[in-house]
Every structure is written in C-alpha cells, then in structure tokens.
C-alpha cells in the first residue's frame, strides 16, 4: 500500500475544498510537500484545481521547485490536454501525468500518451459520483460536468487504452473526512488489474484498514486529513502496521 499526499493547487496556493467545491487557501504548496517528503510520504500528487476550467496551468514553477528537494515520485494533473502539455510537465520534473477532462473528451489521448511515454507514467484521474446503488457516474471539471460514462466501464476502457494507474476520487466524500466510499473501491478493484489510488474522504487512520479489508486498493491519496493536521503520516503508518498492511519500510 502506498500512502500518497495530494496537493490541490489554485494559482500558487495549496487549497482544499469539500466535494471539490468551495476552495479555501491552506498555504504554500512546497512547504507542505517538503514536510510530507521529510516525514516519509511515498509519493506526491500536485493537482491544478482550476486548470481544466480556465484551460491554463500554473503548476510548472511549483513542480520545478519541488523536484530540487523532493526525491520521490511526483504526479502532476489538471489541464493536461496534449502530448506537449505532458512533455512540459515531464521537463519540469514530473514523473507521471494525470489526465481527466481531456481524456474524457478525447479518449484516444490516453493511447497517444501511453504509447509515447509508457503506461507507467500515465495516470487517469476519475471523479466519481454515486448516482444510485452500486452505480457511479464519471464527472469532469471538479465534479461539475456529468459525462454519462459509467465509472466501472470507463476504468476498463482506460486500462485497455494503456493507462498505467487510476486515481479514483469520490466527489461525494472528497474533503469531508468522513471515510472513503467503500462500495466504490470494492466494486472497481474487482474488475481492474492496474493499480488504483483511492482519493476522497480519508479522515482517520482506521479508514485505511476498512478500505483495505473491502477492496484490492493499491494506494490512498490523503489531502484534508494531512493539510488540516487531523492525523499524521506516522498515525497512518502505525494503523497499517497494526492491520498488517504492507507499506514501505522507513529507515
């Protein structure tokens, strides 16, 4: 199990919302990223929260700065719409790019990116909203735009097109700290063989064990609970050890 810190960025600030809405400023992104790195976080995801709305991306400066001091995998998402956008992200120090809106609009983008850069560097970010029992729909533009796509079908399609990993965010639970959408992850991990990152809802260490017991999840992304000091990485790691979940061994 990988424990990932997710930093949502607006302009040059680290921000956090609830259900991907109502964004509030938390602080300076690299201050938080460096802190998590030093504590032993496994990976970092920088996500531009407004790029896909306005078609711009302010992340490059932040990533470039991060990659001077942070020597763990960095994923960059938000506003990646083309091979050129991805190239730019890699050039500034990203190891993986996450695509969402642009991939839904042009599914072939996933094929193009994975052929060019290899599956391992292509993450498809999916925003899922529950629409009825055991059915989730794919949304884009921070949970605002419905797409008519079923989440399970879209994950399978992404896998076939060469995605290396799926970042699956529950819009319903995101920013609430009330726990994961367990049914979502239990359902989706049954039908996919590529790694899946659960994002949205983590509020306390026991949420990790609960998620691990009901799904074959590979990683969790934590934002709210870390940014607002609801718990520390050490608390999460101790929970994992207690529940015999295999995590990275720190020195």
């Amino acid at each position: 199990m990988r424990i990932i810190s997710r930093l949502d960025i607006k302009n040059s600030n680290l921000i956090k919302g609830i259900n991907l809405e109502g964004l509030r400023i938390v602080g300076e992104p690299n201050k938080y990223a460096t802190k998590y790195y030093k504590e032993g976080i496994d990976e970092i995801i920088f996500m531009d929260a407004v790029a896909s709305l306005y078609g711009r991306n302010n992340l490059y400066e932040i990533i470039s700065e991060a990659s001077k001091n942070i020597f763990i995998p960095i994923t960059v998402g938000g506003g990646i719409r083309s091979i050129d956008d991805a190239l730019k992200a890699f050039k500034f120090g990203a190891d993986k790019v996450a695509v969402n809106t642009a991939a839904v609009e042009n599914k072939n983008l996933i094929n193009l990116l994975s052929e060019k850069f290899g599956s391992q560097s292509i993450v498809v970010s999916i925003e899922a909203k529950k629409i009825k029992n055991n059915t989730w729909e794919v949304f884009t533009n921070n949970g605002r735009q419905e797409t008519g796509l079923n989440v399970v079908d879209w994950v399978a399609d992404c896998e076939n097109r060469g995605a290396g990993e799926i970042l699956l965010t529950s819009v319903d639970m995101e920013g609430t700290g009330k726990g994961f959408d367990y049914d979502l992850y239990s359902t989706v991990t049954k039908s996919t063989s590529i790694p899946l990152i659960a994002s949205g809802g983590f509020g306390k260490p026991s949420d990790l064990s609960k998620l691990n017991n009901c799904s074959k999840i590979d990683a969790i992304a934590i934002a709210y609970a870390f940014h607002y000091n609801k718990c520390s990485l050490l608390d999460v790691r101790n929970e994992a050890l207690k529940s015999k979940i295999k995590i990275r061994q720190l020195d």
Binding site: R2, S193, D218, I247, R248, D251
Partner: peptide, 25 residues
C-alpha cells in the same frame, strides 16, 4: 498488478560491497 508500482526492500544476495543497501526500500 502490472505495472508493479511501489516501494520494496531489496535483498542483496551477492557482492558484499552492496551490503549497505540490504533490506532498504
């Protein structure tokens, strides 16, 4: 899962000079 993504401890089996990396992630 494929790709294999994550941290693993390596076990040094040969070459004593690499011993310092044994069981490191």
């Amino acid at each position: 899962k494929v790709p294999n993504i994550g941290w693993s401890e390596i076990k040094i089996e040969k070459e004593k000079s690499f011993e310092t990396f044994n069981n490191k992630s």
